[in-house]
């Protein structure tokens, strides 16, 4: 049998557990106490404490897929708003290749200010803004779609276990969902499907801490089907 996981709701300053554990993000250790740094749902396993926060800004991590908007073009790349305290930077050499030269290539021919792109976080540390790349399947310019924003900390709930939740929404609404870890989702499909998918996303955002969320979403999606 799986060891039982204890869960509790915590606010900053709360002691999640006392003892010796491996601890995840948003947890600070003081002597043998594990302190929550965010409002969220804490999980205390046999040898691990975790905290799933319920609010907060998007802090980039290498290999995250993000969706951002081009906000500026410089001589050597694009500045991208990735819904984070930090701006993303997409170097032109990642797009045009090694032979890129500012005199021969026109950056605005590829992405203009206001364009929406899906990108991957290539590098990020605390000293410099995150560097993006568009090399990879499904990355690059997003030509159309409906943007839905949600709290970045709740994206894992939208995706669900092994993508269960997101696949369910996609198949039941006939929409295609492009998800950025930074809390931006782009929906494409029929207008009815988009409305339905957007409502489902809203529900997930509001009830991210609720236990049988998948069942709830399932019944919403099948109930309203015409």
């Amino acid at each position: 049998m799986m060891p039982k996981v204890v869960r509790k709701f915590v606010i900053p300053g709360d002691v999640i557990a006392v003892g010796d554990y491996r601890s995840g993000s948003y947890i600070e250790r003081r002597d043998n106490q594990y302190i929550a740094l965010r409002v969220g749902l804490a999980e205390i396993g046999r040898d691990e404490v975790k905290l799933n926060p319920l609010s907060g800004p998007y802090i980039p991590h290498v290999d995250d897929q993000v969706i951002g908007k081009i906000i500026d073009i410089t001589a050597f790349g694009w500045q991208v708003d990735i819904n984070s305290p930090f701006f993303g930077y997409l170097p032109a050499s990642f797009v045009f290749g090694k032979e890129f030269s500012p005199s021969t290539h026109d950056l605005s021919s590829k992405f203009k200010i206001g364009d929406l792109i899906a990108a991957k976080v290539e590098a990020f540390d605390r000293t410099r803004d995150p560097q993006l790349s568009i090399r990879g399947p499904g990355l690059g310019k997003i030509p159309k779609g409906e943007i839905v924003k949600m709290s970045p900390t709740k994206i894992p709930r939208l995706i669900g276990r092994k993508g269960y939740m997101i696949k369910m929404i996609a198949t039941q609404t006939g929409c295609e969902l492009k998800v950025g870890q930074n809390g931006i989702v782009v929906l494409t499909g029929t207008p009815e499907g988009i409305v339905k998918a957007a409502n489902a996303i809203r529900m997930i955002e509001q009830e991210a801490h609720v236990a049988d969320l998948a069942k709830k979403i399932q019944s919403y999606l099948s109930g309203g089907a015409s």
Binding site: M2, F9, I11, R161, A211
Partner: peptide
């Protein structure tokens, strides 16, 4: 303060026990 935060984020729900969540 504590009550105000808890009621905004969790309403009056209870934390789910581990079994319920294993789908």
């Amino acid at each position: 303060q504590r009550e105000a935060l808890i009621s905004k984020f969790f309403g009056n729900t209870q934390p789910a026990s581990a079994e319920e969540d294993e789908e």
